[in-house]
């Protein structure tokens, strides 16, 4: 199935959540952009921005930025498998930093929801840059499904 891509389960929901994820205040501050979605997968892009640097001497992005990118992309991967709108919450997230991001280049993150349980969703994600086969970071996360009754998405009233 991983080699035979299918469209996201509910394109209207997915597109709405993808747009919303890039507009939420913290994502907009970072400049997150939606790239692509298919069943069980999502890809986001983070353009290079000097405000997100951890070490000005090297220009390498701060690790915390990668946390946000991987968390958001992983959540979006879960939504690619959902039929209906629901709220999900990150339970835990673990990131391995494999190399520093090359300054000046955008970072892509592709996440896969490899198991959608009734209550828990499991994801794995890779952050990488174009032209370099060595990923920047790997992340695994678990999400609690139907975590709250709160409204989710941009179409519903605040």
């Amino acid at each position: 199935m991983q080699n035979l891509p299918l469209p996201v389960l509910n394109p209207a929901l997915f597109n709405d959540v993808a747009r919303w994820f890039c507009q939420i205040p913290h994502s907009a501050t970072m400049g997150l952009e939606f790239v692509n979605g298919e069943r069980s997968r999502a890809t986001l892009r983070l353009p290079y921005n000097t405000a997100l640097v951890g070490n000005p001497r090297t220009g390498v992005l701060n690790g915390g930025v990668m946390t946000s990118l991987i968390d958001t992309t992983s959540a979006l991967a879960v939504f690619s498998m959902l039929e209906e709108r629901e709220a999900i919450a990150t339970l835990d997230l673990r990131i391995d930093y494999l190399r520093g991001a090359t300054p000046g280049q955008p970072v892509y993150c592709t996440a896969e929801c490899y198991r959608l349980g009734r209550q828990i969703a499991f994801t794995r994600a890779t952050a990488y840059q174009e032209g370099n086969d060595q990923p920047i970071a790997h992340g695994v996360a678990t999400f609690m499904r139907e975590s709250s009754q709160a409204q989710l998405g941009s179409k519903q009233g605040a």
Binding site: V65, D71, T72
Partner: peptide, 21 residues
């Protein structure tokens, strides 16, 4: 700008992670 869910509203999980790191 550290908000994740504007409806709750709740802090962004990534911002919490970035803060702790």
């Amino acid at each position: 700008h550290n908000i994740g869910n504007v409806h709750l509203p709740a802090l962004h999980g990534g911002a919490i992670g970035g803060f702790l790191e």
